[in-house]
Design a binder for these strands. Sequence first.
DNA 1: ATGATTCCATACGCTGCAGTATGGCGGCGT
DNA 2: ACGCCGCCATACTGCAGCGTATGGAATCAT
Lengths: 203, 203
Amino acid sequence: MEIAPAKQRIQLDRDAWVQAAVEVLAEEGVSGLRVEVLAKRLKVTKGSFYWHFQDRRDLQLAVLHDWKEGRIRDIVKQTRAQPGQELEQIYHVIDVYSTRRSRRGMLIELAVRDWARRDAEAAAIVAEVDDIRLRSARELFLACGVPLEEASSRCTLLYAYVFGLSLMVYDRFAEDPARLKRDIADLIARSAAMKQAAPGQSG
Amino acid sequence: MEIAPAKQRIQLDRDAWVQAAVEVLAEEGVSGLRVEVLAKRLKVTKGSFYWHFQDRRDLQLAVLHDWKEGRIRDIVKQTRAQPGQELEQIYHVIDVYSTRRSRRGMLIELAVRDWARRDAEAAAIVAEVDDIRLRSARELFLACGVPLEEASSRCTLLYAYVFGLSLMVYDRFAEDPARLKRDIADLIARSAAMKQAAPGQSG
DNA sequence: ATGATTCCATACGCTGCAGTATGGCGGCGT
DNA sequence: ACGCCGCCATACTGCAGCGTATGGAATCAT
């Protein structure tokens, strides 16, 4: 018997609490972010929580900033295109956000945006993320030769669409969901001002 | 002194509670729908509530059905077009849903949709409303000469856009918000398959 | 070893809220 | 006038959750 694996005695830090909080946020929304629920999930008591955090609000702000940093990292990753591949990258962004694959991320996104409707600090962070996202996407359109105003319109449409789609029960018209989503992507991405053709089977 | 206006002694019925509940729903979301909070708002105690309702869930279902009925009435009102005026009606629908004017209705819409993510009965009702909305909007596109599949794509894009827009902080690119929204409406509504020109200043 | 520090458990008070039980007031019929 | 009934107030139990106080175990420094 070298070591007893009875009690794992893993030291928790702030980040462990934040990660668990994000998980609960995805499942239950902001109103589900409760100290004792989190503690039970982490197999500790709230005595631990109040060691790492001042109060509940302290955790909430940590969650918000964690989300913001993650989103910014993701934006630069998703919108960085090889020169000449900007249109493909636009389609990629639409696909990433509108697929069931990133369901968890979208649930968090929706929870944070719902949160932002009643919390000024959450709203400010969402506004920051929106701003970065929209500007990054607009750069892609601009690189495709789309004029500034149209690029603004199309990238606004892009993000409004993907967020809105995620809160619809959109299995309507489901005779061919893949075709539906591809056609919508074309409506968003393809401009008459573009010199190049659309990628994939959309040409 | 004919009548003493001291205590209004207004009889409350189920509908009064439902209306107050919808108001709270718009302001606080589903988690704010609490019996005692509603009672305080209506200047009564929860003794009244439990006379008109079996429990909290009873009220919730009443709110959901009230919302559903109201939405259905609104859909047939907003999508009923004079023959030949279908395109104008499409623009009207986009405008109604994306304007700040109907902010309250959109807040309720978002609250119900957030609700639907964790409540099966709410989800079923949202699905019903979505179905009716999408089919009604698709009829407008079909009447404009747009083929079926494209009509499905465009009306899905339409509703995803208006819902998504409402949960963005979209005062970005705000040099001319009116132009931005008009251009986006054109992207959604104007099809190459249409015989007629777009209304307003969009032609 | 021993004291200090870190991290967590336990126990407590308090508030908000769901639901129940029961009493009370006013209008109604007869 | 009297009793019934519709509508609401009051008072209670019970639970969940926030925050605090304090004790205790493990780890580290010296």
